[in-house]
Design a protein around this nucleic acid. Structure first.
Lengths: 223, 223
DNA sequence: CCGAATCCGCAGTGATACTG
DNA sequence: CAGTATCACTGCGGATTCGG
């Protein structure tokens, strides 16, 4: 067993061998939100050593999780993206993020809030039932960052940047709010945001991004 | 930012800070299946250095994920168990294991199959709908290991060891089958197992532990 | 026997500088 | 922009030892 293998025929151990190294999941988080150039990744992962990023990208490419593309016409250069197999990690990554969020309030957020983290939060909290057959385009502006959420026939597309089409509602969050996604929802509820467009879609936003109470997946009582 | 922190206010990063270190998730896997003594953990995690186990247990206890109990009358000594908060990691751990399982068939299983991994597989594959209001007690015997699955009113309790009450059906898997849970299901389907008890519950077992096709949780298309 | 603590060598990591 | 190169550091693996 080479150093990084666990020597167990177990799905969890295998997953950890593939994406359990330091920074790997955070790199995948960035790429699940959007394809990135090398410098985008460095910006989204402050503090990551460049040699580490380079090493991880190679390993993840080797593992078939990440793909290295040579971008064509408009922006030439290298672009990294998740493969289909990498995208299938999203549920697990979201499950981890949801769990970690319950432990996040313990610390005061002197740390920065990465935009990709907000997008993951939106995807994590998306309530399929509440979205029903709805269609709407939101644009969320927090200081330094613009996000969008598009619901089309109950399907969510959430990402970084301005809305791809004219937004039905633009929500501008004031600078004094620490830009957690929960704080954004609170600010909306408290009327502390600026709304431009169909203001009635503010309530819908809150409903669509408030998950229903979910039962624990498995009774795991030990006898 | 101390070495092991990422300096990001992000649920995923926080989760990785708490349980992202080497061996941590595997220790939690063992404890999610049953409370363990120090030596149980060493046995379930072959290759783990004892100092590492000791260190991780302290960290996880510090983080409120694991609890150190002094066992009373029957078996005295120290017993480790997950706290309620640690138990809430199960969905994320299972999601990772499910993903890793898709990458498991690539390698031939010269590695051992930890019993706890089989229990996690059962919990991961449990089909709530198929279980309906059913009640049944199964005991699965693979070489070296005995497992049990109890379904009571559609609720699953799966663990290591013989069934806590008289099993309705005992499934004995022959030694030549590599004891993956999928292989166990295949062996049942192929009639390669020995059945003792209500043989009709063999088909029910397969149905209860075959998950329904699940849609991807979020459309994550980038625009 | 259980539940560790201690020591050492090395691989993985972090920080910075540098280059095609 | 997209990485290498270098080097110090520390977490990890492996073994041994130690106290209840």
């Amino acid at each position: 067993m080479t150093r990084r293998e666990f020597g167990q025929h177990c799905g969890l151990a295998r997953a950890l061998e593939l994406v359990g190294e330091r920074w790997a999941m955070l790199i995948i988080r960035e790429l699940l939100v959007r394809p990135c150039r090398y410098t985008d990744l460095i910006e989204g992962l402050p503090g990551i050593p460049t040699n580490m990023l380079s090493t991880r990208l190679k390993e993840l490419e080797q593992a078939g999780i990440v793909e290295r593309r040579i971008a064509s016409a408009p922006q030439r250069g290298v672009v990294y993206a998740v493969t289909e197999h990498g995208r299938s990690l999203e549920p697990a990554l979201i499950a981890l993020a949801v769990w970690g969020n319950t432990r996040l309030n313990e610390q005061q957020p002197t740390d920065l809030v990465p935009p990709s983290s907000l997008v993951i939060s939106m995807r994590a909290r998306f309530n399929r039932e509440a979205a029903g057959g709805m269609s709407a385009v939101w644009e969320i502006r927090v200081p330094e960052t613009v996000l969008h959420a598009v619901v089309t026939d109950g399907q969510l597309t959430a990402g970084i940047g301005p809305a791809p089409s004219k937004p039905d509602l633009v929500v501008t969050v004031p600078g004094e709010v620490v830009p957690t996604f929960r704080n954004v929802l609170e600010a909306i509820a408290a009327g502390k945001v600026e709304l431009t467009g169909r203001r009635s879609l503010a309530g819908a936003f809150t409903r669509v991004f408030t998950p229903q109470q979910q039962a624990l997946s498995v009774s795991a009582r030990t006898v």
